[in-house]
């Protein structure tokens, strides 16, 4: 019983962190699916989302507003708006001018953008860790009073539910809406979609905006869950999310979700049963193994050579 509770606790920890990896991974995978480039600045967009949410929360607190749902909604909206505009601007400034050139050029442009945004936040917000207020406290406890108690916090529940809502909304959007259909068309064949009258520039911008908005959601959630933000944390989270996207099959949206969850659970199980020191070793070994046996990732489709 004790062991089962412990296992469930580690599973919950892993799924929580995994769902936020998935939210960030969507941004990588959508952009890759449509224009075949890796947007390395995506982790920074997520970090900026977290900072914006923090600024909004602090601002509301200064105004004396203490009603939690209002704070969360305003923070979320601010973060999504700022991150989305950032995502849009990054695409306009750094990627559109070099689109269609050699693959390496947008990649380097993306790395440059990532370094620029990181340093911009360093300058604007200082390089220290800033504490993030824990707005959602408390939770459920399971298990007898004496032994190991499993806890499921309201924060973790919030993360699951929000991720679920975002993912469902995104899937519906992609499969049902007009823009979603256009997205799928562009990802299949950009040139053909263009010929058929789809404004591909607009669709590509929309992809960046959607990815950035989801990253902002993850920024707010993780900021509250962990408790602090610093200008570098987008980089590490971005790396993990990118791994999750590759693991699940880059370009595939369900793949990003699956990859995120697997990575999160693998990390928490490793630190739970082996040692925290091996956390990254195991998760990246997993990545290498999957890529060795299934180079397109778990749910990725083999790329068909277009003639």
């Amino acid at each position: 019983m004790q062991d089962l509770l412990y296992f469930s606790q580690q599973l919950i920890n892993g799924l929580t962190i995994g769902s936020t990896y998935a939210l960030i991974a969507i941004g990588y995978t959508m952009v890759y699916g449509i224009i075949g480039m890796i947007n390395f600045a995506h982790g920074e967009i997520y970090m900026i989302g977290a900072y914006t949410a923090l600024i909004a929360i602090t601002g509301l607190a200064a105004l004396g507003i203490a009603w939690l749902p209002l704070i969360l909604i305003v923070a979320l909206l601010c973060a999504m708006i700022v991150s989305s505009s950032m995502g849009w601007a990054v695409e306009r400034v750094a990627y559109r001018p070099v689109r269609g050139r050699h693959r390496l050029i947008p990649l380097i442009s993306a790395i440059g953008m990532s370094i620029f945004l990181q340093n911009y936040v360093h300058l604007a917000q200082g390089s220290r860790n800033i504490g993030f207020p824990a707005l959602i406290d408390g939770g459920f406890n399971f298990g007898s009073g004496d032994g190991f108690q499993m806890s499921l916090s309201y924060m973790q529940i919030t993360i699951f539910i929000t991720t679920l809502i975002c993912m469902t909304a995104l899937s519906l959007f992609i499969s049902r809406s007009r823009t979603g259909r256009a997205c799928r068309a562009v990802s299949q064949d950009l040139g053909m979609a263009n010929l058929l009258g789809i404004d591909t520039n607009r669709i590509i911008s929309a992809t960046f905006v959607i990815g950035a908005a989801l990253a902002a959601v993850a920024g707010l959630l993780l900021g509250m869950y962990y408790g602090s933000v610093d200008p570098l944390f987008g980089f590490i989270a971005g790396l993990k999310a990118f791994t999750a996207a590759v693991l699940g099959g880059i370009g595939s949206i369900p793949g990003a979700m699956l990859g995120g969850l697997i990575l999160g659970v693998a990390e928490s199980m490793t630190s739970g049963y082996l040692s925290g020191e091996y956390k990254d070793v195991i998760s990246f070994s997993l990545l290498i193994l999957i890529l060795l046996f299934k180079p397109t990732g778990l749910l990725g489709k083999p790329e068909v050579e277009k003639i």
Binding site: Y6, Q10, N13, I17, S228, I236, S268, S271, E277, K279
Partner: peptide, 15 residues
């Protein structure tokens, strides 16, 4: 046990 400096998620460690 060691952790990684710069990490933010310590839920597994705490568990």
């Amino acid at each position: 046990e060691g952790i990684t400096a710069g990490d933010k998620d310590f839920s597994s460690l705490v568990t």
